[in-house]
Design a protein around this nucleic acid. Structure first.
Lengths: 351, 351
DNA sequence: ATTTGGCACTCAGAAGATTTGAGTGCTAAA
DNA sequence: TTTAGCACTCAAATCTTCTGAGTGCCAAAT
């Protein structure tokens, strides 16, 4: 889309105005608030053309114009400029995110809190996709007869564990033996290559009846598998109720309904992340606007996501869900800085 | 409060009607829907008296009556009768709650889902209060140089752990030595008697420089302390938006705002639980109605809680938050059965 | 070829008027 | 005590009117 200069100015002015006032903007208001050197009639003509191009729309004939999805798209793609945060803002965010952190989880939790509070919208963070990481250690720890703790250590220093039930009369030593053999043969293997079969074939030397062995192996397997379960932190849903965009109860209900549907948003993020994996410059963000989001109830929202890194291969996402009518540049600069802070925090944790 | 028989009938009929229709009920409607043997004029007189007693109120002069908080209180205390669930309902709930459970957490998660879905309201569950439980094992497991996993095993079979940082050059053996000594001297001690001082004095024999030792002990201490952190599962907030009681956006906003305030609800539950600890028959539930709940935004809600047990001394809470105008007996029979199912589930897990 | 002033037209939303009907309290008779 | 009857009340629904920010388009001006 290549617009002449004046059209760009008009579109930009309309988006800026509409975003702050939530009123459809008309030709006269536009003149009042911006120093255009032309008359309102000229603007009307321009606006009519922008509407023909699909960038603006009218709620009804006698109202001003509002940006269409396509208009917002044009705006974020080529009209908007993203400013850096001030030193003060950056310090505030960083200190909040790094407050009492002892695991990556804490970073993500803090990040969603901060993002949601600062933007006034919903924010989300997903734990890293560990699918591609590999197993480095596997310990099976006897807790009491019949119960053991399986500790799975992954590359990138991630530790997960699960309490499992084992046959009552297995001894500490037998467990240790099993876990050693499994660890020896599986360490270095990517998570997604570990199946119940590779696991079973890894234990050859143990002098333990098959039935018992299999039970332990099965439990170990579930422990390994659940290690790459994604957790999602979603924060600030209630904030959407304060926005005029969702003052209609039905909209709000649909939105919160979808958001509360566990895994729905996460699934969507994974989907678009897969699409985008090709590109993926280090500090890039992705924006989906309105209808571009294929989730029920999010037709009036925009969804901004970005990717944090954990080592070279492992990554996860954070994002903000707000109304289409948002100050994109502000949200983007926030989310960018939050990503950076998370990246730094992860490095610090694994030092 | 002791009402004559007819007044009881009238109050009960009004609550029942209002709960299902959400319309203030007048004398005529009351006659139509219930088989009273008296005329509407008589009912009007009764209603006027019930209003004087503070059990009913009028939204405005020319409307019917609705129950006041006090009216609901009277209703739940002496008018309502709680039916058992049908066999079918019980099976459904039990199978949903026991679906793929491997820890207490899973039970609670499933329980909140089920409760919220079945009632249409918000449900919550809190992990057990472990303050009074005691430590049975403490293991410090070397993950890699500089990193260790502290595994805390509590009575009642609860296992918690935390990844901590330790001095880089501590060896596996040294760690094991520390953890053995700590375990020996602390096992059997209630969590709330363990302080950094008792912890430090428990290690006497180790030939490890104090500075290093202290760092490890400190980390172990934080691991132990966070073991009794309460988690709260809150589910179904969005459902409140579908209720006519919260069709006013402001109310809905206040409610969800308070609910999303982490720890606010949990704190309140702990408070009322402390009050109630004296009584505490095994299958008792507690109801707070309207103004009785001292949380902002919950003035139009009722809060029903009950206590599940984990062994003899450890317990936790589950609850439902819905509009005052709810079918109390249905919710109560649900929550009762859910509690029972959780209790059974916990027993099964620790067998 | 643009730009502009002018003008008739549109229409959502606010403000006001009217109607409706379910409800009340009170009185006087049964 | 209970009941029939009646005057009165008032929220909510419906309809009407008014208002004003906005539009499109034309003809004159640049």
């Amino acid at each position: 889309m290549s617009l002449d200069n004046r059209k760009k100015q008009v579109l930009q002015a309309i988006v800026d105005d509409y975003v702050t006032t939530n009123e459809p903007v008309g030709s006269k208001t536009l003149i009042e608030r911006h120093n255009f050197t032309v008359s309102s009639a000229t603007l009307r003509n321009e606006m009519a053309e922008l509407e023909k191009l699909g960038l603006l729309e009218k709620p009804h004939t006698s109202a001003g114009r509002i940006p269409s999805d396509k208009g917002y798209r044009e705006y974020v793609d080529s009209l908007m400029h993203v400013d850096d945060l001030t030193q003060q803002e950056r310090e505030d965010i960083a200190s909040r995110i790094n407050d009492s952190v002892s695991e990556v989880k804490d970073l993500l939790r803090n990040a969603t809190m901060t993002l949601s509070e600062n933007t006034g919208f919903v924010s989300l963070a997903m734990t890293p996709r560990l699918r591609g990481s590999y197993l480095t250690q596997l310990k099976i720890l006897m807790i009491e007869p019949g119960k053991a703790l399986v500790v799975v250590v992954l590359s990138a220093g991630v530790v997960k564990d699960k309490l499992v039930r084992i046959p009552n009369f297995l001894t500490q030593d037998q467990l240790a033996q099993i876990s050693n053999e499994v660890e020896k043969s599986l360490s270095g293997k990517p998570l997604d290559e570990i199946t119940l079969i590779t696991l079973a074939s890894s234990v050859k030397e143990a002098k333990i009846p098959d039935a018992l062995l299999n039970q332990v192996l099965y439990e170990a397997y579930t422990a390994i598998k659940q290690a790459d379960k994604l957790d999602v932190y979603l924060e600030g849903e209630h904030r959407m109720l304060s926005l005029p965009d969702f003052s209609e109860l039905g909209r709000a209900r649909d939105l919160l309904g979808t958001l509360s549907h566990d895994g729905m948003v996460a699934g969507y993020v994974n989907e678009i992340e897969a699409d985008a994996a090709a590109g993926g410059n280090d500090d890039s963000y992705m924006i989906r606007i309105g209808q571009e989001i294929s989730l029920e109830g999010l037709e009036d929202c925009s969804f901004i996501t970005t990717t944090y890194k954990m080592g070279d291969t492992i990554s996860g996402n954070i994002g903000v869900i707000g109304p289409k009518r948002m100050e994109y540049s502000k949200v983007i600069s926030q989310i960018n800085f939050v990503r950076k802070t998370i990246n730094d925090g992860i490095k610090k944790l694994s030092e």
